[in-house]
């Protein structure tokens, strides 16, 4: 009688008690093909461990460690369902108390919260409209103490709506808003970065429906947020980066 397939695999995975294991071994002794398969499957398990167990001993990358430390804040438990204004206020209050340098993961979170708050705003999405482009950029540059630029994203289908000043962990934050023909909005969050930070590559974070690409470039952290597929947003983030670093 053929060995049932599930018994063979249970044997391979060492999930049989002594009696059943001996029964399977007795049957395998009579069935060379099954025995060869069982041996091959056991080798697969061993090879998987040989290939991948080394990962267990690798140091955990910072970006994964940051997730577990940067969220140790009360606001997050509340913010899970909806990102409400009250939560933002609570979170900024928390930010004032935190004295560690701004972690990039925090940048993404701040940007997503700001996006969630301002992007749906119909009547007052911005403080200064794109019709006063020069004034907007000069004003925000002055407040951040850095020369800013509002990237042109017409090629990507987005027009500048305008911008506003926000308060963030490191003081003033510039918040530029863009909109496409269908009314879909993107926001670019620009904040000073405390301490000595090296320029970073793009990083990605998904905050509920909001996708965020963020990076550090010189003294400034940038985060581009939108309810867009990751790859679409990456293209736009790339365009933003290229315009800021011609």
């Amino acid at each position: 009688m053929n060995l049932p397939e599930n018994e063979l695999h249970a044997y391979v995975d060492d999930r049989l008690d002594g009696e059943r294991r001996r029964a399977v071994e007795a049957q395998l002794a009579q069935a060379p093909e099954d025995a060869a398969r069982a041996a091959a499957y056991r080798e697969q398990n061993a090879a998987l461990h040989a290939l991948f167990d080394a990962v267990l001993d690798e140091p955990v990358p910072t970006r994964l460690r940051q997730i577990e430390t940067s969220r140790r804040t009360a606001w997050f438990a509340v913010a899970t369902g909806s990102l409400a204004v009250g939560v933002v206020v609570g979170w900024f209050a928390h930010a004032l108390l935190a004295d560690r340098p701004q972690a990039p993961a925090t940048l993404a979170r701040q940007a997503a919260v700001a996006h969630a708050v301002y992007a749906p705003e119909v009547r007052h999405p911005v403080e200064v409209g794109a019709d006063q482009h020069e004034h907007l950029v000069n004003w925000l540059s002055k407040r951040l103490g850095a020369k800013l630029k509002a990237p042109v994203l017409a090629a990507e289908g987005f027009e500048l709506v305008g911008g506003r000043l926000l308060s963030g962990e490191q003081g003033a934050v510039a918040h530029f808003m863009y909109q496409d023909a269908k009314g879909k909005r993107l926001t670019l969050y620009v904040s000073r970065i405390a301490g000595k930070q090296r320029d970073t590559a793009f990083r990605f974070s998904q905050e509920e429906k909001i996708a965020v690409f963020y990076w550090i470039d010189g003294p400034l952290g940038y985060a581009l947020s939108g309810e867009l597929p990751k790859f679409d947003l990456l293209e736009i983030a790339t365009a933003v980066y290229k315009q800021l670093n011609p």
Binding site: L48, L51, F52, D53, V55, L56, D57, E58, V60, L64, R65, I67, E68, T69, R71, R72
Partner: peptide, 20 residues
Amino acid sequence: MNPEQLAIHIPRLRRYARAL
């Protein structure tokens, strides 16, 4: 659940993810 509880599982999540 707190972040420390999660952190314990990161190495094994990474192993599985690498293989996957």
